[in-house]
Simulated scan of single mutants.
Amino acid sequence: MSVTDLPIVAMLRNRMQWQQTRQKVLAENVANADTPGFRARELKAPRFQLDGSVAAASLPGIGLERTSGVHLAGSGQAAPSEERTGTRFEMMPSGNAVSLEDEMLKAADNQSDYQLASLLYRKSLQTLRTAVGR
């Protein structure tokens, strides 16, 4: 079994690949901000199975598991967050629905998420190296 086959490493690798693709989509949205009739696009976030592979859309994602009685029980629901499903501004006369402010906020969020995933990936590999004595 390869190190990259471990579930946590596979999930982090898949997450970083998704974030790279999302960054490209967000950059295309910004680049086409002046294109008449252009609508901003977004990628659907991946959902992972316990083995680290990407789950199909109809399958549930990773849930919380209480492995010990001394652990705090989680509710299984994410913390409330600001939804940016649509633009906060009116559509331009050209029919363009791209808000540069929203796209730049999404790009900044995506960049910080990618940095976190890459840090976790690197630390996971360092921990594995330490465990095998390197």
Rank of each mutant, 00 (worst) to 15 (best):
Leu119Arg: 15
Leu43Asp: 04
Arg134Trp: 05
Val3Trp: 04
Asp102Lys: 14
Arg39Asp: 07
Leu50Ala: 14
Glu103Gln: 15
Gly74His: 13
Leu116Met: 15
Leu26Tyr: 00
Leu59His: 13
Ser112Gly: 01
Thr35Cys: 10
Ala27Ile: 03
Ala55Ser: 10
Lys106Met: 12
Val70Ala: 11
Ala117Gly: 12
Gln23Phe: 12
Ala55Asn: 07
Ala10Val: 09
Gln23Gly: 03
Val9Asp: 02
Arg134Pro: 02
Ile8Trp: 00
Asp5His: 11
Ala117Phe: 12
Val25Met: 11
Met104Phe: 14
Arg129Val: 08
Gln126Arg: 14
Gly69His: 10
Tyr114Glu: 02
Ala131Lys: 06
Gln20Ile: 13
Glu103Trp: 02
Ile62Trp: 05
Leu125Lys: 10
Arg84Thr: 08
Ala45His: 06
Arg47Met: 05
Ala73Asp: 10
Gln19Pro: 04
Gly52Gln: 03
Glu90Trp: 08
Gln111Glu: 11
Gln17Trp: 04
Leu26Arg: 00
Lys44Gly: 03
Val54Asn: 05
Met92Ala: 13
Ala10Gly: 12
Glu103Asn: 06
Ser118Met: 15
Ala27Phe: 01
Thr21Phe: 03
Ile8Pro: 03
Ala57Leu: 11
Met1Cys: 07
Ser124Asp: 01
Glu82Ser: 07
Ala57Met: 09
Gln126Met: 07
Gly76Cys: 04
Phe38Thr: 02
Arg41Met: 12
Tyr121Lys: 08
Ile8Lys: 04
Met16Phe: 03
Arg84Trp: 10
Ala73Trp: 01
Ser124Ile: 10
Thr4Ile: 05
Arg134Met: 11
Ser99Ile: 04
Leu12Thr: 09
Gln115Arg: 09
Asp34Arg: 10
Ala40Asp: 07
Ile62Pro: 01
Val70Leu: 13
Glu65Gly: 04
Ser68Cys: 02
Gln126Cys: 03
Ser99Gly: 04
Glu28Arg: 14
Ser81Ile: 08
Thr127Pro: 02
Thr67Ser: 11
Glu65Ala: 13
Arg88Gly: 14
Ala10Thr: 14
Asp34Asn: 14
Leu128Trp: 15
Met16Leu: 06
Ile62Gln: 08
Val25Phe: 09
Asn110His: 00
Arg122Pro: 09
Ala10Glu: 10
Val54Pro: 01
Ser112Pro: 01
Thr127Phe: 05
Gln17His: 11
His71Ile: 03
Ser68Asp: 15
Ala40Asn: 09
Pro93Met: 00
Arg88Ala: 15
Asn14Met: 03
Thr85Trp: 12
Glu101Asn: 08
Tyr114His: 15
Gln19Phe: 07
Tyr121His: 13
Thr21His: 10
Leu105Ile: 05
Leu119Glu: 12
Asp102Met: 11
Asp5Met: 13
Thr21Gly: 14
Ala78Thr: 14
Ala40Trp: 09
Thr67Tyr: 06
Asn110Met: 02
Ala27Pro: 00
Lys24Cys: 02
Gly86Arg: 12
Gly69Ala: 14
Gly76Tyr: 08
Ala31Asp: 12
Ser53Asp: 08
Pro60Cys: 10
Tyr114Ile: 01
Ser53Ala: 03
Ala131Asp: 05
Ser94Phe: 06
Asn29Arg: 03
Leu128Val: 15
Thr21Leu: 12
Ala56Asp: 15
Ala31Ser: 15
Leu26Cys: 01
Ile8Tyr: 04
Val3Gly: 01
